[in-house]
């Protein structure tokens, strides 16, 4: 599938329009329109039960949309064998067959996926400290997740989705997973969608952020653009209020306020005016960033 050198395929793009998915009388997703560019690492965020897993399941053909259309690389993935060979969803705790040895499970993936790199898989499994003679069902949750991460990365699928795959992994294992993801993505560019509640850990990896809320799309944009809409202003109360007022015209929202004696810290969210922020900084205020996780909490906690 991949030609070396020229004309390398850089992953599948995703186009979703007016997607709705229902389970019985429960609506899991409604009116979702979403474009994810190929060859990038996308972050998919949302609180529990907001439809993240449903969305990824539709992309992986595990579910069919009730209405709307889902296109991967311009085609509907459902029962599309060639496309599906290159779409890989790893759900929490690994998503692997449990009752054969892990080595046999890798054999199975190797047959099913032409782009699977067995050598890389063995190397990854080794670096995660996995014993491949053990059945996944007998592994700890963290080990099963690491096996899932191994399969997800070594499949080299054009669209690779990790849904809460970090669950059960300890901190060093997660770090190893992120490091491997960066290194392999650099060498084999393709499309990744990563869903995680550990927002601060995936923040440096993701180029775009998509947030679902109550089964609808809240936003989908460049991570840098989202971060730029948050700011903290810290300094003497009067100066901070004055700087915040200068932003009011642009319709920002004050999302946090803390006072420590004569010092006030305001957190603002909105389309901020950089020039007046620069002025505030020159006037002696501390103008700081708002971590993605804090923005996420503000946007979804209501």
């Amino acid at each position: 599938m991949k030609a070396n050198g020229t004309a390398t395929i850089q992953g599948y793009g995703v186009q979703i329009s007016d997607l709705a998915v229902r389970y019985g009388s429960t609506t899991a997703l409604e009116g979702v329109n979403l474009d994810l560019a190929p060859g990038r690492i996308h972050g998919l965020l949302g609180r529990n039960g907001t439809g993240k897993t449903t969305l990824l399941s539709v992309l992986a053909s595990l579910r069919q949309p009730h209405t709307g259309s889902v296109l991967v690389e311009g085609q509907a993935p459902f029962e599309h064998e060639v496309l599906m060979e290159n779409i890989c969803l790893i759900r929490e705790s690994g998503d692997v067959i449990g009752d054969v040895s892990a080595a046999d499970a890798l054999d199975f993936v190797e047959v099913a996926r032409p782009s699977f790199d067995r050598e890389y898989a063995d190397r990854l499994a080794h670096s995660f400290g996995l014993d491949l003679s053990v059945k996944p069902a007998a592994m700890s949750r963290g080990q099963r997740s690491a096996l899932g991460a191994t399969i997800g990365l070594a499949s080299r699928a054009e669209l690779t989705m990790f849904d809460e795959v970090h669950l059960g992994m300890d901190a060093p294992t997660r770090q190893k997973f992120y490091d491997e993801l960066i290194a392999d993505f650099a060498e084999h560019p393709r499309t990744f969608i990563i869903s995680s509640h550990l927002i601060s850990e995936i923040e440096p990896l993701v180029e775009t952020v998509t947030i679902l809320k109550n089964g609808t799309l809240l936003l989908s944009e460049e991570a840098d653009d989202l971060r730029r809409r948050g700011v903290t202003l810290t300094g003497p109360t009067a100066l901070v209020d004055q700087a915040a007022a200068a932003q009011t015209v642009l319709g920002h929202t004050v999302v946090g306020s803390r006072d420590l004696g004569p010092t006030r810290q305001l957190t603002l969210y909105g389309d901020l005016d950089q020039r007046s922020l620069d002025e505030a900084e020159r006037a002696g205020l501390q103008v700081g960033p708002v971590p993605l996780q804090d923005l996420f909490i503000h946007l979804t906690d209501a």
Binding site: R40, D179, I182, L205
Partner: peptide
């Protein structure tokens, strides 16, 4: 290289 940078600082290579 950008790849070394990405690995060292644990950021997206595109960044």
């Amino acid at each position: 290289s950008t790849t070394q940078y990405a690995s060292t600082y644990r950021i997206n290579p595109a960044t």
